[in-house]
Design a protein around this nucleic acid. Structure first.
Lengths: 252, 252
DNA sequence: TCAAAAGTGTTGGAAGTACACCCATGT
DNA sequence: ACATGGGTGTACTTCCAACACTTTTGA
């Protein structure tokens, strides 16, 4: 195995998702992109990213780069895939380890907006640099798939939340309405949430209960090591069927 | 993004799984390891792997390396994870893109056995080089998880097979007995297999039908691009709920 | 005729879906 | 009072696990 540098560039990039209201005011999935200020793909929009530092793990590099370019500290960060096709960058050979991240709405507003950083609706992107359109598409698919068997929706929310808010997250990501009654029962049966005892007053209707995450399922389940342990601990009512994929969980 | 070489070594490694009879004669999961012939971890057993070639994609590098070191051409190959912790290799910084592969029993015998290549039972490995024990554990978890929602078992079998053989693969991987009656119905209902019309004669019992894979689900679903397409095509009876994957995925 | 594995039928429970209905609040 | 979501009850369906039972072969 090689210790020598290979002439292959190594970078990390991150697909960051947040929920923001779209034109109609309904919450939908958005992501921040940065404008490239050098060749190749000068002036094109691209995923935030940069080189892997010698003294940092891949994930640490992703986190640092995110903080530097967007000021964001995601509540959820997981490796997505390593992209390494020969022709994905003109002239040079570039391998990108791509992560995907979720941030809360309040956090999302921290993004230093300007000419070179902007939010885009995830389903309607311009032509991006490199193979980044493909990467986003894949990350979106992963987000939606994982939403169905995992508890990542909480990464979009604060400490406390109503069931309607939680359902709103699911609906925004999955892009389909969910039955409030059934959604409630599924969440309660999963053991992932518990009522805080508080309610929200001020609405012109019955005050909804507030819930919190029980912590039975860890949010930051990135990496193969923690993965299976977390998945096993997450099994609340059932015995010991392996859950989903990817590391963090997997993966499905 | 960096075009310059970074001083970080970049390698591919592969976890190869095959089914072979264990001590008791029952089929179980094995994998081939190679003995290291240089530092670090001189003489330790390790996953087959090597540097990424400048002119090859990551997957192509994995395939070529597999052919060179073990003569194997897997029927299934999918990216597992990128490992890049700072201290995973002493002295040097090494990032490994790890793939996992499945090979058929006949193919498995091709492995050029010798002092430096040997098969090991996947559940009982010695202390491996680098973080390879962790990697194998993760790959095993992924194999078992994916077996439950995907059709990868076929990668272990030939063109035609009986339901008992297919069930044997599942049982070996999942390490638990399955009800023949229910297993049959699940497979038939999935639309993934169809009878060839032939039967196997010569057993001292009722001749079982032979089945073939319908091709509704592609085996080689590695990579984000093909992933979702494959998953959609796999939906035989039902309309259009996103399936599983991990592009593999995804890792789930 | 018997053993052994292939293959079919039947039943009961878990979990998801659809939808009717009651509850608590602000206006 | 009534509109608006919060929250409960319930029937229907679909899927899965268990297991009894029948079929077809070789010995």
């Amino acid at each position: 195995m090689p210790a020598a540098a290979s002439g292959i560039g190594l970078a990390v990039s991150t697909v960051i998702f947040a929920l923001r209201p779209d034109d109609a005011g309904a919450p939908s999935v958005w992501l921040p992109l940065v404008r490239r200020i050098r060749e190749p793909f000068l002036h094109r929009w691209a995923l935030p990213g940069g080189p892997v530092a010698l003294s940092e793990s891949l994930e640490a590099s992703a986190r640092r780069n995110l903080l530097e370019t967007t000021r964001l500290q995601p509540t959820y960060l997981e490796q997505l895939y390593a992209f390494g096709d020969v022709d994905r960058s003109p002239d040079s050979r570039l391998v990108s380890i791509v992560y995907w991240a979720l941030v809360r709405p309040e956090e999302a507003e921290r993004v230093s907006l300007g000419e070179n950083v902007r939010w885009f609706p995830a389903d309607d992107l311009p032509d991006l640099a490199f193979d980044h359109n493909l990467i986003v598409e894949y990350a979106l698919w992963r987000l939606r798939t994982k939403m169905e068997y995992s508890r990542i929706a909480h990464a979009f929310l604060g400490e406390q939340f109503t069931l309607a808010e939680l359902r709103g997250v699911h609906e925004a990501v999955l892009q389909k309405p969910l039955d409030p009654a059934n959604f409630r029962r599924q969440m309660e049966a999963s053991g992932a949430i518990e009522p805080t005892g508080d309610v929200v007053v001020g609405g012109r209707h019955r005050p909804p209960k507030l819930y919190r995450y029980t912590g039975a399922v860890s949010l930051a389940d990135a990496g193969p090591l923690t993965a299976r342990v977390v998945a096993a601990a997450a099994q609340h009512p059932r015995p010991a069927t392996d859950d989903a994929p990817h590391p963090q969980e997997d993966a499905r």
